Computed example of a mutant assay.
Amino acid sequence: MSVDVFEPLGGLEGVGSAARAARDAVDVLLRDRGLRKVGSDMTAEALLRGAHASAALAGSPATLDEVRRGAADGLATGAVRMTGELMALAPRVDAAPVQVWTRLHQLAAADLGPDEQLGHLRTTREPLPDDIPGLPPAPPADEMWERLSALAQNLTRPTTAPGLVVAGIVHAELAVLRPFPTANGLVARAAERCLLVARGIDPVGVTVPELGHYELAGSYGSGLGDYAARGLTGVRDWLLRTCEVLTLGAERSPLVRSQ
């Protein structure tokens, strides 16, 4: 019998009620607009804004206008490149998560390093990546592979935990593990977004959770650091922050101004 590792995390103090409130914020957004009326242009705009915010959180100086015009740096260009496939990748994330994550990295890092690094999970022969400020050192490659494999296996199993909890844990694990030589933050945030789509929280991709992470940037690195170092207390606090991020993401949806 498989173990549901996500279920007890959804039961941590305050997490269940916060996840329901965040889900309600998204449901209100979609209900007010009507799912059938959400066009691909709105999804594309939400993804573009999310790409800009995610890249900015990773250190990109590009403005939203520059990103929109395709005149941005490698971080922002990679983030936008991921948006082109994100909605197609989302349905595969529960069945083949590692393949989805490696594809996200191929897209995100195309302008950030040599071709042989694209979609490449790091090995013991390579230096530890240090591309997300505020985190303790990345774990050695053998530990990373073990934890990444366990995370992928758990994603393929049924869970009673809210989808938001699963998405938040995957984001944090990928960020803490930093399985790739570069662009780990971009991949972690895109992986979270994939799960929000796949688990039916935002099936049409019109919230902007990356903008929520950006607006709460002051607690991003420290929140991930606490997740890594403070046991269940750190996990709970990260999940509560994830719920706040999704609520902000619903408020920043392009649907809000188009209604």
Rank of each mutant, 00 (worst) to 15 (best):
A76S: 10
A46T: 00
L48D: 00
L216Q: 06
V67M: 14
R241A: 11
G231I: 12
P127Y: 10
G39N: 05
E116W: 14
A217L: 01
G218M: 05
T43C: 03
C194L: 15
P139W: 06
P140W: 03
A22F: 06
L164S: 14
E116S: 15
V235Q: 07
A58Q: 07
G163D: 07
I132F: 10
H105L: 02
L195Q: 05
A55V: 05
Q106W: 05
G185I: 00
G113H: 12
V187Q: 10
A217E: 02
A56F: 00
L75M: 07
E244S: 15
L112S: 09
V80G: 09
A96D: 15
R122C: 01
A109C: 14
R125Q: 13
A56S: 13
R178S: 08
R81T: 04
G249P: 03
R193M: 07
G70D: 11
A167P: 01
L151Y: 08
L211P: 07
S222V: 07
Y220T: 04
V26T: 10
R230W: 05
D65W: 10
E85N: 03
L57T: 05
V26M: 03
A25D: 15
A175W: 09
L57R: 08
N154I: 10
A44Y: 01
L47R: 04
I201P: 08
R230V: 02
S60Q: 03
V80A: 13
H105S: 03
R199M: 10
L107A: 04
I132M: 14
L30K: 07
G163C: 08
L177Q: 05
P181F: 05
R36D: 11
A161N: 14
A138C: 06
S17I: 15
A76D: 00
D111G: 05
V197E: 03
H171A: 00
H52Y: 15
E215R: 11
A88E: 12
A150M: 11
A44H: 08
E215Y: 05
D94S: 12
